[in-house]
Measured scan of single mutants.
Amino acid sequence: PDLGLTQLFADPNLIENLKKNPKTSEMMKDPQLVAKLIGYKQNPQAIGQDLFTDPRLMTIMATLMGVDL
């Protein structure tokens, strides 16, 4: 199971919303991170391994779920 990750990354406004959010806007200036996020739309399971190697993803996930870290 993808634990709902498919829906989190399926939002067509995902990148724009993250660019507008004060907690994630600075991160979204990294083209490699943006490319990763776009890739998760097609393969949400890929985030599982990346969560352990890129701490920014935890902040992004929390933001998408509405959790304040």
Rank of each mutant, 00 (worst) to 15 (best):
D68W: 02
P55Q: 07
T6Q: 15
T53Q: 12
K19N: 06
N17H: 11
P31K: 10
L51K: 05
N13R: 09
D68A: 02
A46P: 05
Q49Y: 12
A46H: 09
A35E: 13
P31F: 04
Q32S: 13
G39A: 14
L5K: 05
D54P: 00
V67I: 15
K36E: 03
L37K: 00
N21P: 00
K36W: 07
T63K: 03
Q45L: 13
N13I: 04
G39V: 11
F52S: 09
G48H: 15
L3T: 11
D2Q: 15
G48I: 15
Y40P: 00
P1W: 02
P31R: 07
T24C: 04
T24E: 00
T24M: 03
I38C: 07
P22N: 06
T24V: 06
F52K: 14
S25M: 12
R56G: 03
Q49A: 13
G39S: 14
L5E: 04
L69E: 15
P22H: 06
K19F: 08
Q7K: 15
L69S: 14
A62F: 14
M65Y: 08
Q45I: 10
L37C: 02
L57S: 01
K19L: 11
Q32L: 14
L69T: 14
K29Q: 10
T63P: 01
M28F: 03
M28E: 00
E16P: 05
K36D: 03
D30P: 00
L37V: 05
T53F: 11
K36A: 07
T63A: 15
L57E: 01
N21D: 09
A35G: 06
V67E: 13
L33C: 02
Q42A: 12
A10K: 11
P1H: 10
L64C: 03
M27D: 02
I15F: 06
P12A: 09
D50S: 05
N13M: 10
G39F: 15
K19T: 13
I47R: 03
K23C: 07
L5D: 04
Q32K: 12
L57I: 11
E16H: 09
S25P: 00
P44E: 04
T53V: 09
P12I: 06
D68G: 03
L14W: 06
L51C: 08
Q32V: 13
S25W: 05
M27A: 05
D30H: 02
D2C: 09
Q7G: 11
E16M: 10
L33Q: 01
P12T: 06
P22C: 06
I47C: 05
E26S: 08
E26H: 11
M58N: 06
I60C: 02
G4Q: 15
M65T: 10
L14S: 03
M58P: 05
P55S: 10
T6L: 15
P31Y: 06
P12V: 07
Q45S: 14
K29R: 12
K41A: 15
A35S: 10
A35N: 09
A10I: 07
L37N: 00
L14E: 01
L57H: 01
A62G: 10
D54H: 02
T24S: 03
Q7A: 14
L33G: 00
Q49M: 12
L69Q: 14
A62C: 10
P31Q: 11
D50Y: 02
P1T: 13
Q45F: 09
D2I: 15
N17R: 13
Q32P: 03
T59S: 08
G66F: 07
I38G: 05
L5Y: 12
M61K: 03
L64R: 01
A35K: 11
D11T: 04
K23N: 11
I38N: 12
F52D: 07
M27W: 09
T24H: 03
L51V: 12
N43R: 05
T53I: 09
D68F: 02
L3W: 15
Q45M: 13
D50T: 05
T6R: 12
N13T: 07
D68S: 03
I47Y: 11
G4M: 15
V34C: 05
L64Y: 05
T63Q: 08
D30C: 03
I47W: 14
A46W: 11
L8V: 10
D2F: 04
Q45G: 14
A10R: 12
L51F: 11
P44Y: 04
P55A: 11
E26L: 08
A46F: 10
D50A: 06
K41N: 12
F9R: 01
A10P: 02
L57D: 00
K41F: 11
N43M: 04
Q32H: 12
T24A: 02
V34Y: 04
D50W: 02
T63W: 11
T53A: 11
L64K: 01
N17W: 14
Q45N: 13
T59C: 08
Q42Y: 11
L14H: 02
T59E: 06
T63D: 03
N21H: 14
T6E: 13
D50H: 06
P1A: 11
D50M: 04
L14M: 12
L69V: 13
Q7R: 09
R56F: 06
